[in-house]
Amino acid sequence: MFEARMAQAALLKKVLEAVKDLVTDANWDCTSAGISLQAMDSSHVSLVSLLMRKDGFDMYRCDRPISLGINIASMTKIMKCANNNDAVTLRAEDEGDTVVFTFESADQEKVSEFEMKLMDIDSEHLGIPEREHTATVKMPASEFHGICRDLSTIGETVQVSVTKEGVQFTASGDTGKGTITLRNNSSVDEESQQVVITMQEELSLSFALRYLNFFTKATALADSVTLSMTADLPLVVEYRIEDTGYIRYFLAPKIDD
């Protein structure tokens, strides 16, 4: 038996928003530690890795590991039936082929139950080594969102350069070129507004803005975002989900031909 209850449907709605543009179907892997999901987009350029530890739930029970194969669009439709303040419970039998969503209104006067069929999903799990990166940039999530959106109006590719001066985002296209520079401002009082750059050596990498714009759909989940970069390796974009998990995106770089 798997059963997990979260106090606010809003959180699960935000998680789905952050996944649904990249992934059509995914296995939600449930263990006694919590729920995780790893899936690549269909072109194998990017990957999303979600972790929601059990301590983030009001109630959590998972008698044995279970993978819930879920069509993300179907789950999104069901979650739209919940109010943001509703409590949500997910329930699945060990050998069952459905997952049940129960929504309870804050005043407990309304209870809705939706049953969704599970799918058999043949997913390729990738082994992703935890590693130290050459440069990291922590910035307000809304700032990163704005930069990706603004530079998309200029070109398809962004060059991210980290130097002692700061971090520079550059896009160029037929109509011209745009450059946005952020400087370290770790002295700003409010932590969520800080730009904190760590760097072992200068580097410059290029990425497809199309995918970065998908990643910024997670902006509602966290105040800040951290970009981790190493030359010629995939970029890691991480949004922390309070203190109980994260959503991480990996994006393969564009490499000079």
Partner: peptide, 14 residues
């Protein structure tokens, strides 16, 4: 011109 790399060339299948 820069070419889009695949994630599969960086991470191995489990």
């Amino acid at each position: 011109k820069a070419k889009q790399a695949s994630l599969m060339s960086f991470f191995s299948k489990k």
